[in-house]
Design a protein around this nucleic acid. Structure first.
Length: 275
DNA sequence: ATGGTAGTCGCACTA
């Protein structure tokens, strides 16, 4: 059996925080890292520091200034097609990873944040978010239809689905990221394909769990006003691989949110135990 | 009821 450590981190500019990323990869001995909000185009991506640290396999979907996703790995990556126009917003990097006798697909997503108004008629950004989720759903219908049933979905989903994925369920019901409409559509995506939300499969629903804390709130240690926006999902075929390690197999690296000039997101890590 | 911060690009936009 081999254990693959998979991490996902909305880094909010990979060039600005490259030292933090390399430090995290080394300290946690990560095998594969999915980054969101790299905020640069492919030619500007800092390939060299990753290669020097042993991450020779790099797949980037970038754009100038905004958004952008990248998957960096010690293990070879095979790039797969995306359902989304890569030139448009660079929110999905799809790869296949082969480990011994088994292989799985790793989908790195940056789901649109959706703006401030939780109404798809009034707010086109929110409509984009809901449409993006619908496209994801159709995309995975196709992946499963061709027999690719070993799926790992990670990234910044920009949705905190459970009551205890936010600091105050009541106060955030009308705030984009926790509205019943988007939570329902995310749930629909999950249920349509029987995906497992690894964090909530391993950690009790009563426990508050966050991966993001706004830059705008001060003293995030005193008043812990966070949200769980970052997720790792697996398909049923990978259930044992993802869950057999128990809750020690999943971690939010909250301390990274308190490093100097941090991203507003903390990285999350899953140990995937493959035969 | 509003504003609070951060990053990139360039004096606006996204989160």
């Amino acid at each position: 059996m081999s254990t693959i450590k998979i991490a996902t981190w909305n880094i909010n500019s990979v060039r600005l925080r490259i030292e933090q990323v390399i430090r995290f990869l080394k300290e946690q001995d990560i095998d594969v890292l999915c980054l969101q909000e790299i905020k640069c185009e492919e030619p500007q991506f800092p390939y060299d520091p990753f290669r020097e640290a042993g991450y020779e396999h790099i797949e980037v979907s970038g754009m100038k200034g905004y958004h952008g996703t990248a998957t960096v790995s010690k293990i070879p990556l095979e790039r797969l097609p995306t359902a989304f126009c890569p030139r448009e917003e660079a929110r999905h990097v799809s790869t296949r990873i082969v480990v011994g006798k088994t292989d799985f697909e790793l989908h790195n997503f940056y789901i649109p944040a959706g703006g401030d108004i939780a109404d798809p008629v009034e707010n086109l950004k929110f409509k984009h978010k809901l449409d993006f989720l619908a496209t994801m759903n159709a995309y995975f219908t196709q992946r499963f239809a061709i027999g690719d049933d070993q799926q790992v979905l990670v990234g910044d989903f920009n949705i905190a689905p459970h009551e205890n994925d936010v600091w105050s369920h009541k106060q955030l019901l009308k705030v984009v990221s926790h509205t019943p409409l988007e939570v329902g559509i995310l749930k629909d995506l999950q249920d349509s394909h029987d995906f497992i939300d690894v964090a909530r499969a391993l950690i009790d629903d009563d426990e508050k769990l966050f991966s993001w804390w706004s830059y705008r709130s001060r003293d995030i240690n005193k008043s812990d006003r966070g949200r769980r926006l970052d997720h790792i999902w697996v398909s049923q075929a990978l259930k044992d691989a993802a869950l057999c390690g128990g809750r020690d197999g999943f971690k939010v690296h909250r301390d990274c949110r308190f490093w100097e000039r941090p991203s507003d997101h903390a990285p999350i890590v899953l140990d995937l135990n493959l035969p």
